[in-house]
Simulated scan of single mutants.
Amino acid sequence: MLINEQMIDDIALGATVLGTGGGGDPYSGALMAKVALKNAIKPVEVIALEEVQDTWMTVPSSMIGAPTVSIEKINSESQMLVAFEAMEVALGETAAATFPIEIGGFNSLIPILVAAQKGIPVVDCDAMGRAFPEAQMVTFYLDGLPSAPNTLADEKGNVVTLHPIDGVWSERFARPITEEMGGSAAMCDYPMLGKNLKQSALGGTLTRAMKIGQAIRLANAKGENAVDAILDIVGGQRLITGKIVDIERTTAGGFVTGGVIIEKLNKAGTESMPTDVYVHFQNELLLAHSGSSAGDLNQDSVLASTPDLISILDHETGQPITTEQLRYGQRIDLIAYPCDPKWRTAKGIEVAGPRYFGYDVEYKTIEELAGEIQ
């Protein structure tokens, strides 16, 4: 499948839904990908995970840092290529393909930039099926694959190569380096042979993002409900249809953290919805519970939690809203839907469940929670 500009727009839109509020600004990512496509060595091809050869060296391409930073600190066109080629130097070999480490608005498009400049394909896969805030929150870490080497690059040309013992140490080293690089950096980690990629990555996630983006675009063109169109693809449910009445947001430590309060709109058919919902985030939306403050959180108030996906969508258009774009007065639908089964394993919940982020509640699937509410 050869990438074109419409596909870039659809991937950006759908990946922002799956990015659960994080993954970077889709608008700037789409613009950069389109420019890269026009200047490409050859047409950029997206290949299925099954097409990857066992002996290929594959390297993911991504950005690390707080999404709020990318609004004012625009990434350079060559920044990702610098990190990617530094990885090839560290490995002593040329990469045969690249892919997104996560599915998020900006990070899903970064591999297109590299593929266009290197003349290599993008693999239709990622290591999260969504976006997560920390480097070890990938299926590769769950499967015990090595993170090293890591390479980071900023827009000035600075490059750092790391050899952490695992993904946790990768996060501990890379985050403060990213801070020194201005809060946002290009990063490559988890280089691996094709045979390992096929065993551990989540296949078909780029095309899933594109399908969601297409559904939003077509629903709006036909005057249909775009949120319903999204839910038809991802499953799950609306948690609340409401208005944002307050938001707390802090950018520090390489993350944007905070919470948003949503007040229910008085509409017919919403009687089963809570009056107010509080949503916690750390780059990505992590946990939603009934109540109008963070202090209302308890086991019985939880509506959805990581690693399941939570997305905030514009009520009229279904357009996903990232955490840095949340504003007072926005009319939204808050939806939640299932994560990949790998994240529902004991190790997956340990790595990316609510307790990891400091929430004193047990993880329950959204299917379980929906049953309790009913």
Rank of each mutant, 00 (worst) to 15 (best):
L2V: 09
M7K: 15
M7P: 01
T20Q: 05
G22V: 10
G22A: 11
S28Y: 08
M32H: 11
M32S: 14
A33V: 11
K34Y: 11
I47E: 04
V52Y: 01
V52K: 04
T55P: 02
W56F: 10
S62K: 02
I64L: 15
P67I: 13
I71E: 14
E77I: 11
M80S: 09
A83R: 02
E93W: 05
L109N: 12
I110D: 02
P111F: 10
V122E: 13
V123T: 01
V123H: 00
D124G: 06
A127H: 00
R130T: 02
R130P: 00
F132Y: 07
Q136R: 03
V138N: 03
T139D: 01
F140C: 01
Y141P: 00
L142T: 00
G144M: 06
S147Y: 03
P149S: 07
E155H: 14
V159Q: 03
L162G: 04
H163Y: 12
W169K: 07
A174D: 02
G183T: 09
K198W: 05
K211C: 11
G213F: 13
A215P: 13
A221M: 12
K222E: 14
V227T: 15
I240Q: 03
E248G: 07
G253L: 11
E263C: 05
L265T: 10
G269S: 04
T270R: 05
P274R: 08
V279N: 14
H280E: 14
L285F: 05
S293M: 06
Q299R: 11
S301G: 07
P307W: 08
D308Q: 06
L313N: 06
P320W: 10
T322I: 15
R331S: 13
A336R: 03
C339Q: 01
C339N: 01
P341F: 00
P341N: 02
K342A: 02
R344C: 01
T345M: 04
A352Y: 04
G358H: 12
V361H: 02
Y363R: 09
E367S: 01
A370H: 04
Q374K: 14
